[in-house]
Every structure is written in structure tokens, then in C-alpha cells.
């Protein structure tokens, strides 16, 4: 078990965003976290990175309790994130954005050796995203949405994380680009052996890719199982695969039904 989230409670001001969420991620797997807008998926990622502080509960990464650690320490222990909205540094060049990603590398080397190593790693990551190679000298803010998403993932990969957190990588992208991003995620998982926790609204694609999946509704995990199980699950199908825009309400009804 590389990541274990135990009964986490998080708040935004007075609003309770996570109500006792528990979740497990096994090393080497892709785990998808699906749910409607506002279900608390992004909050969960931010809580596990220490940007949002958990009021109760614990986050165990690689056997260590990281719940109270400062964000940069959590990141430096081997977690990388391509967050919601991509958060590319708009005034840094693509190369500089990538170099920022190499900062949290667990085997940091200073001086010339470090620079050479980083350049080598950058080559490896650019293999995954050849489009970025042409854009290295361009400023991050000038990239298209799809390119920014690639950059966000590439940047996260440069620290050679053990656990990669992806928050809605398909959001706002054209179908072709979405397919490309999902293919790359699989490649990262299979050839680099990186464990992936993937937050998605695009439930169908995410569950097809994932080994395991969790369904969140208004701050709670209501269902979990293997990707295939969840894909076949009628409730999931009704709420996330066919339900379209009414998903939140249906999700809530389901939750009550599951409890009864």
C-alpha cells in the first residue's frame, strides 16, 4: 500500500468538504476517483498535499504519516501533482516550467552534475510529450489548453514521483487530445511504473483505464471497486455514464439508498 487515507475530514471555512473519506492506493496501480463537480475530489488531493489541512484523520504515504507535514516536504517525499486548472507558470518558459518540476527530485545533485541529470530526465519526459519539445523556449502562458495539460503532467513527471496525482487532465480538451492524454497516462503507469491517482469527471474513460476506482458524492466515498466492476455497476452507469447533467442529484439519492 503506497497511499492510505484514513477517515479524513476537511473544511473550507465552515463548509465541510470531506466527511470521513478513506481510500487506498496500491503501488503500481492507476486508481480513479470519480464524482460530480463539488463532490470533494480536488479537495481530497489538496488535503493529501497539505494545501488544505485535514481537521481529522490521517494520510499515510509509504508507511509514514504525512498529514501534518508542510506541502513542500510532502512533495519531496515522492508525490507529484498536476493540479486542477494545470497551474502552469505563465511567465516562465516551457523549459523553466519543466526545470521547476525537477526540484523535488529525491536524489538532488547540485551544480553541473545536477544540471546534466535534469537535462537527461527532461529528454526522457519529452519522449512522452514530443509536442513540448518544439515549445521549450516559449512562455507557458502562450500554450494551448492541451499543451498546458501536457506540460503540467510532464512537469510533475520530472521529479520521478512514486505517486502521481492528476486532477481532471481531460477537462476542456478536444476528444482527440483527451484520448492522447489518457494513452500517455497508461504509458506512464506501465513503462515508468508510476502509481497514479486520477481524479476525473470523465468517468467512462477514467474507469476503463483504472485498476481500481472510488466514487465520491458530497464529500464522502459511496462506492469502490475495480475499474471493471464500477463500469458495470448500474448506479454508476445511471449517475455518471448516462445521467449527464443531473448527476449530482442522482448521486445524492443513490447515496441515501446505499445507506438504507
Amino acid at each position: 500500500m503506497i497511499l492510505e487515507i484514513r477517515d479524513i475530514y476537511s473544511y473550507y471555512g465552515a463548509i465541510c468538504a470531506l466527511r470521513g473519506v478513506s481510500l487506498e492506493v496500491t503501488e503500481g496501480e492507476i486508481v480513479a476517483l470519480i464524482g460530480a463537480n463539488g463532490a470533494g475530489k480536488s479537495t481530497l488531493l489538496m488535503t493529501l498535499c497539505g494545501v488544505v489541512r485535514a481537521r481529522r484523520g490521517a494520510v499515510i504515504f509509504d508507511g509514514e504519516d504525512i498529514t501534518r507535514r508542510p506541502t513542500e516536504k510532502i512533495i519531496r517525499s515522492g508525490i507529484a501533482v498536476a493540479p486542477e486548472g494545470r497551474r502552469i507558470f505563465p511567465h516562465l518558459t516551457v523549459r523553466e516550467n519543466l526545470q521547476m518540476g525537477g526540484l523535488a527530485s529525491r536524489d538532488p545533485e547540485r551544480g553541473a552534475a545536477g544540471t546534466a541529470k535534469l537535462a537527461h530526465k527532461m529528454e526522457g519526459v519529452l519522449e512522452l510529450f514530443p509536442r513540448l519539445r518544439e515549445r521549450l523556449a516559449q512562455r507557458g502562458g502562450t500554450l494551448s489548453g492541451g499543451e498546458q495539460q501536457m506540460l503540467a503532467i510532464a512537469r510533475a513527471m520530472l521529479s520521478e514521483p512514486r505517486l502521481l496525482l492528476l486532477d481532471e487532465p481531460s477537462l476542456g480538451l478536444a476528444p482527440l487530445m483527451v484520448r492522447q492524454i489518457f494513452t500517455t497516462i497508461r504509458e506512464i503507469n506501465e513503462s515508468h511504473g508510476t502509481t497514479v491517482l486520477l481524479v476525473e469527471q470523465n468517468a467512462h474513460q477514467a474507469l476503463r483505464l483504472a485498476h481500481h476506482g472510488y466514487v465520491m458524492v458530497t464529500g464522502e466515498v459511496v462506492l469502490h471497486g475495480t475499474g471493471a466492476e464500477l463500469l458495470a455497476n448500474e448506479e454508476v452507469q445511471a449517475a455518471y455514464l448516462e445521467g449527464g447533467r443531473k448527476e449530482t442529484k442522482q448521486g445524492e439519492t443513490q447515496q441515501r439508498e446505499t445507506r438504507q
Binding site: E72, I75, R87, P90, L92, E96, M100, G101, A104
Partner: peptide, 21 residues
Amino acid sequence: GRQQRACEQDKVMAALLGVNV
């Protein structure tokens, strides 16, 4: 310098890349 410029643009993201803001 790069870390500093990154902090100017987005402190949360800088921290999410391991920068001690």
C-alpha cells in the same frame, strides 16, 4: 531565481513542486 519567479506567479503551485515558499 527560477523558484522566486515561480513564487511570484503562483505560490501554491510552487509549494506543490517542492519549493519552500
